[in-house]
Simulated assay, not measured.
Amino acid sequence: MKFPKNKKIYCAKCKKHTPHKCSIYKKGKDSMMAHGKRRLERKKVGYGSFPKPIQHNQCKVNKKTTPLYKCAECGHVQVGKAQRLKKFEILNK
């Protein structure tokens, strides 16, 4: 799907329609101190195989892509609606 690089949408901080720059949301680095990560590391210690079943067959073809819109005036970032897309293309207009 093609997304425009700049789009004029409503900014909740400015309380008016302003130009926004579009980009893709990317996941941050995982925290090593998260409770689930600590629990998995504790399970993996010692003799034995991986404690949870590893899923090999992928049933879904594509992943959800979330657009981010950054206001050109105040810099406020708002999250757009996530969609299942094979291709996320930002047009240079």
Rank of each mutant, 00 (worst) to 15 (best):
F50Y: 13
C14N: 08
K5V: 03
Y69W: 03
C59S: 12
M1E: 04
P53V: 05
L40I: 12
K52E: 15
C14E: 13
Q78F: 08
K2Q: 14
T18K: 14
R84P: 11
C14V: 02
A34R: 11
K27M: 04
K52S: 14
S23E: 09
K70N: 04
E73V: 03
Q83T: 05
C11K: 13
E89W: 05
G36V: 04
M32I: 12
G46W: 08
V45A: 10
L68Q: 07
Q78V: 04
D30Y: 10
T65K: 08
N62K: 15
F88K: 00
K70G: 00
A12S: 15
A82M: 07
C59E: 08
L91D: 02
K44T: 14
C14K: 08
K2H: 13
N6Q: 07
K27Q: 09
Q83R: 14
N57C: 06
A72Q: 15
A82H: 04
M1D: 02
G28E: 01
Q55P: 00
G28C: 00
G46M: 11
L85I: 07
V77T: 14
S31E: 14
Q58A: 04
K13P: 03
M33G: 00
K63Y: 01
L85R: 02
Y69S: 00
Y25M: 05
K86I: 03
F88A: 09
D30T: 12
H76L: 12
R38K: 13
Y69N: 00
P67I: 04
G36S: 07
V45M: 05
K93G: 15
M32Y: 10
G46V: 10
S49F: 02
A12H: 11
A34V: 06
Q78T: 13
F3R: 01
K63R: 01
N92I: 12
K27L: 05
K29R: 12
R39V: 14
N62W: 15
L40G: 09
K64W: 09
Q78D: 12
M1H: 11
Y25R: 10
V77S: 06
K29H: 12
